[in-house]
């Protein structure tokens, strides 16, 4: 191990060739905050094959309250995807300690019991007290993983509002509802929570309470509609019994198919990046900084029409413009 940086083009080739060590190094690089490393990371992202980043794979976000069983549901999904021959990468985001900045990471073995399958790759991330519930590195890391895996799943602990983050930076968002808890339904009704693309009530094995939560969710969803026209399915499953998991995997995939069918897939990926950029700018410069770039709406429009570029390079360019505007 040394502080030397990798050669970005070679690293991109190795990552696309699904070299596991290369992917690990790429993720380390994308986590690296030193200025030289950021340049190298930008070059690496630019060297990744564009088809995989624009239309390849399936980037899924899974979120829900603590204790809803996200990890065990993820574990069950991994098994289904592996049976279907799909290669799976996971980004698991854990909270870090507000006092010490340290963190206890991951639920690796809960998500992947045998822990020996080379076609499953799990990286844990601490959210490090920034960027709402999501770590700032999630979007660039998702891109690196999409270059090498069929499914990239981002798991976050979602509490209320912070759940929005993950839904804005993935192709498909799945919300895991806790049976017998009305919280998520209240959030949905009140519009506090962005409507996910798939809702699943876990622990259907507990019976009555799960069925009740499911029917309430269905009632709530009937009055809501995804602004893009996607009809949100509400399902139930049990990670413990392994029931409903195939259907859940199908529902997630139908959303991907729907995006492709609507010709919205690449636009959605671009929008993800724009969301990441704007959020990042807002964290660094606040509403005022966004205002200097003409406001959020104008910014999104401009980003939707700008050519593809690595998020790091794009961010540095936007950042430069804000700094210039400050100095003027």
């Amino acid at each position: 191990m040394s502080l030397a940086l990798p050669e970005p083009d070679a690293l991109a080739v190795a990552v696309s060739g699904r070299d596991r060590l290369a992917l690990a190094r790429a993720l380390n690089l994308l986590d690296d905050r030193r200025p030289a490393a950021r340049q190298c990371a930008a070059a690496f992202l630019d060297a990744l094959p564009t088809d995989k980043l624009d239309t390849g794979g399936h980037l899924i976000g899974i979120t829900g309250p603590p204790g809803a069983g996200k990890s065990s549901l993820t574990a069950a999904l991994i098994q289904v995807w592996r049976r279907r021959g799909l290669k799976v990468a996971i980004l698991a985001v854990d909270p870090s300690s507000p006092i010490t900045g340290g963190a206890l990471l991951g639920d690796r073995l809960r998500m992947h019991a045998s822990g020996a399958d080379r076609e499953v790759f799990i990286r844990s991330l601490a959210c490090r007290g920034e960027f709402g519930g999501l770590s700032a590195e999630v979007w660039p890391m998702s891109l690196a993983m999409l270059a090498a895996f069929d499914i990239v799943l981002v798991e976050t602990v979602g509490v209320g509002q912070k759940e929005i983050d993950v839904s804005k930076m993935t192709d498909t968002t799945c919300f895991v509802a806790q049976p017998a808890s009305g919280d998520s339904i209240q959030f949905l009704k009140a519009g506090i929570m962005e409507v996910p693309h798939v809702i699943v009530v876990n622990k259907e094995d507990i019976g009555m309470a799960a069925r009740k939560t499911l029917s309430e969710l269905k009632n709530t969803l009937r009055r809501q509609m995804d602004p893009e026209g996607w009809q949100v399915p509400a399902l139930s499953a049990s990670a413990a019994l392994g029931s409903g998991i195939e259907k859940l995997a199908d529902a997630l995939d139908s959303h991907r198919q729907w995006l492709l069918g609507q010709g919205q897939f690449t636009a959605r990926r671009q929008r993800c990046q724009a969301e990441w950029l704007v959020k990042h700018l807002r964290e660094e410069f606040g509403r005022y900084g966004i205002g200097l770039l003409g406001g959020e709406e104008a910014l999104f429009t401009a980003l939707a029409n700008s050519p593809r570029r690595s998020p790091i390079a794009e961010y540095d360019a936007l950042r430069g413009r804000v700094m210039d505007a400050f100095q003027r």
Binding site: R20, L21, A24, R25, L27, N28, D31, S96, T100, G101, G102, A103, L104, L105, G106, R108, L109, G115, A116, F121, I122, R123, S124, A126
Partner: peptide, 25 residues
């Protein structure tokens, strides 16, 4: 003391340990 810790409990195979070390960087 501020480290990020990956700990997965008991009874891991050396292969699982190496896999986790790699994937978690």
């Amino acid at each position: 003391v501020g480290f990020e810790i990956v700990y997965e409990g008991i009874r891991l195979t050396p292969e699982q340990i190496a896999k986790a070390a790699l994937e978690e960087g």
